[in-house]
């Protein structure tokens, strides 16, 4: 009941597609996939992160307009929280958890 800044809605989830050239390509989820992201953000357990990865792969399959500059290799999910300093409110990010999911074997895209 209103006690901490570390609540699900204040966390940030980064969905980063790792590419063969070593760079990351950040994606975002919209309806209807976003619901899973919000649940995983609230409870970033291995189970919810796995569900989020699965949902992200589905979303990517449904978004053929996305073109990666290099072949995608894996999806990295990072959950961050923002910490604000007493007296100044200067912020810095702190990673809550992260997980890496190789692309499925039947991944259809280049």
């Amino acid at each position: 009941m209103f006690a901490s800044t570390d609540v699900g809605s204040a966390r940030q989830v980064l969905l980063l597609v790792e590419l063969a050239d070593g760079s990351d390509f950040q994606i975002d989820l919209v309806y209807p996939y976003r619901d899973t992201l919000e649940r995983a953000r609230g409870l970033p357990s291995p189970d919810w992160l796995t569900r989020l990865a699965r949902t992200s792969f589905e979303a990517l399959e449904d978004s053929p307009e996305i073109r990666f500059p290099a072949p995608p290799q894996a999806l990295r999910i990072e959950v961050w929280r923002i910490l604000a300093a007493e007296n100044t409110l200067n912020t810095h990010g702190e990673m809550v958890t992260s997980a890496r999911f190789p692309l499925p074997d039947d991944w259809p895209r280049d």
């Binding site: 923002i82 100044t88 810095h92 990010g93």
Partner: peptide
């Protein structure tokens, strides 16, 4: 407050 958390700390 909602900036990219990977950015270095700023005032």
């Amino acid at each position: 407050l909602e900036a990219d958390p990977r950015l270095p700390s700023r005032a």
